[in-house]
Structure formats: C-alpha cells, structure tokens
Design a protein around this nucleic acid. Structure first.
Lengths: 229, 229
DNA sequence: TGGATGCTTCGACTAGGGTCGAAGTATGAA
DNA sequence: TTCATACTTCGACCCTAGTCGAAGCATCCA
C-alpha cells in the first residue's frame, strides 16, 4: 500500500512549533547549543533537549560535542532545501502571513539560507553567473566552467580546495520568496564568506538578514551585472 | 522573533499519517475523490473529509466538484516538489525503510512524480535533453532551445500550445531516489502522456510505478541516448 | 416525489505527545 | 575534592487533535 519513504515521520518532526523554530534558527548555518535553541524556540532546556534528540534521531541534525556544550547544525543541504520549500508553501498558500513587517522586505532582498546567500541578491548572483557563462547546467548538476574558475580565483576563492572536499561544489537552491534558483553548495558558502571578509556585507544572526553596505552593494552589482541593470 | 513563513503549520498538515498517505496517493497526478482517498489512507469517509478540508485550507490541494463527487489533486508542482524532498529525507536519514520489497527497485527505475516521469529513466531523459542541447538552463529557469522545439514537435508534442498556458513549460524536479534532476512542468507531463499514447509505457495507479514494454524501453533509449549507453 | 449515493457537520471518546519540575550525569574550573 | 555549568532522564500533568457514530445536506436517478 505504502510506496516510497515515510513522509509523515519527517513532517511530524518539522511540524511541531518549537522544533520548527529551532530548525528555522539553524537555517542561518550557525551551529547552536541546546540552551540557545531552547531560547530560540521559547521552551525550557529540558523540553528543548527532548526535541533535539528527536530531530537528531530523525536525521535532520548533526550534533557535535565540544566540552560540556553540544552544538547542533542542520544535517545537510538537503534538509535546508526542504525547509525552504516548506517556507515557500507556507508563504504562498493559505494563511499568508499576518505580520508583514519591515523585516520582511529585507529578508526578501538578501538573507542567509544555510550559509549561502538567498533572496533577490542571491538569485541575481546566480543569474549573472549563468549569463556570463561561468556556471553551466551540466547533466544533472551545476558545474563551474573554465572562465568561472578564473572568475572565482580572481575573487580569491580557492575552488580547487573546495573541490577536494566531498560536499558538492555547486548546487541549486530554490528561494521561497523569489521562487528562483540561487547558488548553494560549498561555492555558494565561499562567496558569502568572502563578502563578509571584504566587509561588503554582514549578517544578522538573529534574523538571517544579510545587510550590504552601500559600497558593498555597488561592488556586488559591478561583479554580478544583470541584463536589466 | 519568527522570521519567514510559518513552516510548522504546513509540516503538521503533512505530518499526519492519514494525510501523508493521501498526499502520497495524489503524487500520481490523478485527481481522486474523497472516498478513494479515505480508502487510500485507511480511514473512514468522515475522517477523510475532515483531513481533506484541512489540507485544502492549508493550500496544499486543489478541489474540484463534479456532480456529487469532489475531486482533489495537489495544488501545484511546488507541493509535489516538497513532498519529493521529504521523501528524500525520509529515505536517506534515520529509519530508512523497513520493507525493501521488489517494488522498490521498480519505483527507483521509473515512477510517476505528479504526472511526469521520475526515477532513473526520468533523470536519463533529462540528462539526454541537456546533452543534446535541446534544453538549457536560462537564467533561473529551464528553456527549450530551437533544436529542442524541433525535437519536441517531431515527437508530436505541441509545445506552442503548452506555452500558451500559464503553467511553466519546463521545470526541474529533484528525485529522492536518484538525487538528480528530472523534467517537470507541462512539457514533462506531455512527454509522459505521449509515452502512454504510444504504448511505450503504462502506469500502475496504485503504486506509481511506470512500466515500459521492451520495445518501448528500446525506443526510449534510442530517443534519449546517454554518454554511457 | 422517493430513494440511493457522496460528502459534510456535530459530538463524544481517547491516545499520543508536548510541557515542565525534580533529580541524575558529565564536563570544566578552582 | 568541591562547586558550577551544560545537558539528559524521569515522571506526571494536561491538552490538542485524530477517530468514528449519527445525523444532516446535496446531488443524481428512477
């Protein structure tokens, strides 16, 4: 009767408000401790501990012990991907947000999606890389072209080193706000880190908003021009 | 505190076993009645009715009344996309299926994913279309090239008519089994329909398995060759 | 009009799971 | 060793939400 894997179990895990808050908090890409996640979710530490062990055994999280602290992060990009998808459904359908605060616009413009850049600026970067021929869809995956490799190393990102790692270099990730792809994977991560190093942008840990400075935004648009710009 | 849309509500909807079964059943792409979905989920009609109204108001379903029947189908490709993603998480992580029957292999080979072809053969078709230059990643979306247009009309699919419709023509969809993209969107749908018309393949409504005949599979591989084949 | 079918609504029952207090374990610092 | 911090486990409470029987609409057929 049942075919395919059991959706319900995973969905139930995400379905609890406290757990959903924790997962959303982890979308920032930062690893957080039990206490921090408890506060994020608005529950006591005991409750949080129980939730986290469930999420962990459900395979959604990756725990790491460091001294007497226990850090949790999302298990993989796939998890982040599904969470973004759920956000898209929640945003689009039904109860489409009661509170449309000023934060919302900023979130749509640029935010962190599990360590890489999402939002309008994320999709712009992605589009521009494709348009410039630095990135191509090669079979199932995204691949960096020769020119892309040069482009990236010009930007002082060591793509060769990234390629050594087992994690995929390039990956697509679908925005819930823009409904378009942006760049994920280790390269996507490297770009965001580089933006921060160059002080083009900095991220707010609490809200996932990435705010670009004026000069940073200008440099960004120079680097990733679009047809319309 | 909370940023972005509310994941938990949507996830809770999917999280109930009965509802998850219904949604999984609808992944076949067929519209089903309340009674059929009740049977699929293993609950009474009253219970099913209650579940379906929740799924509906959650924006996951699209209801249509026809006489005294009420048909439900998934609201959009996005919903199917998220469901596939959840299947991927459920398959990969934690309790990775107790029952690995013979059906499983067939499901991985070729199955219906909300009206289009998924599984190994789905990704093969996608890869081949890309490799032959019929399909390209154009900015955020997939686009059919000139040669692709010719290819498609050779196959007696009226792409022009499909393009008139508001639904996107080409779209990517990520397999939970192969973890690779396959073709969704109205074109993906048209392909599968055409395979059925040509009696290359037929789909089992209960299990989502798509079974190709020997000659059908041969024709398929002729039409969508791969580098390895 | 009467009866059958398909679905919805109402009400009551029940179980599963989220919640926190209190006690227990592990790690680090003095 | 002793105390403090970070987390886990246990136990009990409570409440939401899934479940079905019974009754109520709506639609179709004869």
């Amino acid at each position: 009767m049942k075919e395919g894997p059991d959706i319900a179990q995973v969905a139930t895990l995400i379905g609890d408000p406290a757990r959903a808050n924790m997962l959303t908090a982890l979308m920032s890409g930062k690893a957080l401790t039990v206490s921090e996640l408890a506060q994020e979710a608005g529950v006591t530490i005991q409750t949080a501990s129980s939730h986290l062990s469930k999420l962990d055994s459900g395979g959604l999280l990756r725990p790491r012990k460091q001294g007497r602290h226990k850090y949790f992060s999302l298990a993989s990009d796939d998890v982040a991907h599904v969470l973004e998808g759920l956000m898209g459904l929640a945003a689009g359908a039904g109860h489409l947000r009661k509170r449309t605060g000023p934060k919302d616009a900023e979130l749509r413009k640029a935010r962190v999606c599990y360590n890489h850049l999402a939002g309008d600026m994320g999709t712009q970067m992605f589009d521009s890389l494709i348009a410039q021929g630095h990135l191509v869809l090669e079979g199932p995956d995204l691949a960096l072209t020769q020119s892309g490799l040069a482009f990236v190393s010009d930007f002082e990102i060591d793509a060769a080193a990234l390629q050594q790692a087992r994690a995929p270099l390039c990956r697509e990730c679908l925005d819930w706000s823009a409904r378009r792809s942006h760049l994920a994977g280790s390269l996507g991560r490297a770009f965001l880190t580089r933006f921060e190093d160059l002080t083009w942008a900095k991220r707010d840990q609490k809200t996932r908003i990435v705010s670009f400075s004026d000069s940073g935004a200008a440099a960004f648009h120079r680097l990733f021009p679009t047809a319309s710009t």
